[in-house]
Design a protein around this nucleic acid. Sequence first.
DNA 1: CGTATTTCTTAACTTAAGTGAACGAGTTAT
DNA 2: ATAACTCGTTCACTTAAGTTAAGAAATACG
Lengths: 192, 192
Amino acid sequence: MQDILFDFISKYVSLTEDEKNAIVSLDIFRSVKKGTTLLKKGQKSNDSYFVLKGCIRTYYVIDEEEKTTAFYTEMEALTPPCVISKTPSEYYISCIEDSILLVSNSDMEEEINSKFPKFEIMCKVLSEELLAKQQIDFDAFKTSSPEQRYLNLLQKRPDLIQRVPQHQLASYLGIKPQSLSRLRARILEKKS
Amino acid sequence: MQDILFDFISKYVSLTEDEKNAIVSLDIFRSVKKGTTLLKKGQKSNDSYFVLKGCIRTYYVIDEEEKTTAFYTEMEALTPPCVISKTPSEYYISCIEDSILLVSNSDMEEEINSKFPKFEIMCKVLSEELLAKQQIDFDAFKTSSPEQRYLNLLQKRPDLIQRVPQHQLASYLGIKPQSLSRLRARILEKKS
DNA sequence: CGTATTTCTTAACTTAAGTGAACGAGTTAT
DNA sequence: ATAACTCGTTCACTTAAGTTAAGAAATACG
């Protein structure tokens, strides 16, 4: 399971056995059951997550309705904005499959960073990459219709459509569950 | 004019006179006339921008139509995704007011970074902050209707509504110019 | 200065998403 | 086993955005 982590890291920097051991000894792997809430609105937190296996989602509650804004699956990392801004969280994070996560807090990161400067470099590269990626995703969302967004998702992350409940997918696409059903029916009709 | 830059930097790290001089001597301030295209689709570039005065926008051309995805005004920085991924740009950048920009390329940044490690730290903090900010903006976009987005913009960046052409604003909100006109009329009606 | 062009608004009509309700299938709890 | 829920779909109706077209207002330019 740790291999997934080191596979990921090796894309950015190469680690010695010592360094790997130092990371493992931090003991930050955590098993989480489906349905667990990792963070609630209003809470403060210093935790960042990296998904080794499973899927977590972030959502807001607006007018008593859940609005899902993101899904994180294998090899994806999430540092909630509230960790950066040191303010109470605006949203919830919950686990939608039994998952294995890496949970790290700011202190640990500082410790690792000071021991292994490589890490600092990796973090910088990573956040720049994520920023660029998010910009592209945001642009794609803005410039397309719900139907195009769905077709795009079907291309880019077909697994999500299988493993995630429809009503969560719908709000991720910016529409209601009924509209997603209809939209899918429309697409099927067009094909035939 | 340089003061704006140093005001901005001072939020993150404090600079000595020597350091300030080193930056000024890079000679990266650039005056740009309204209408100038800074980057075209398909071009490669290493340039990042920081707006000292004026306004620039990024836009895609999809089906022969411009889709504006972002505006950058005073004290805002833009590193296009193509600079990070080292691939040809997917979008255009153009200047919508006579502006004064700071244009830096990767080489310069490396030079500055190696001379003044402070800078590296600032860049890391900056990109983490930007990432968190973008996440929040993206979430707000996904979870609201065009009308709510407009009202939100009116709160957060009222200047934009004054200084930017309506049809660019409309596509920034994810709708057509006609819909923006209608939506504004609707809001006025409600108020009365 | 006047003409051309761009920009913004309005209107009528079409299309797609929101809303409220109902139904069946599958799940959970008791 | 059955009642209570959740989830996805469908339907009829409402509301808002897309589309096409036209005209007014502002801007650019020769």
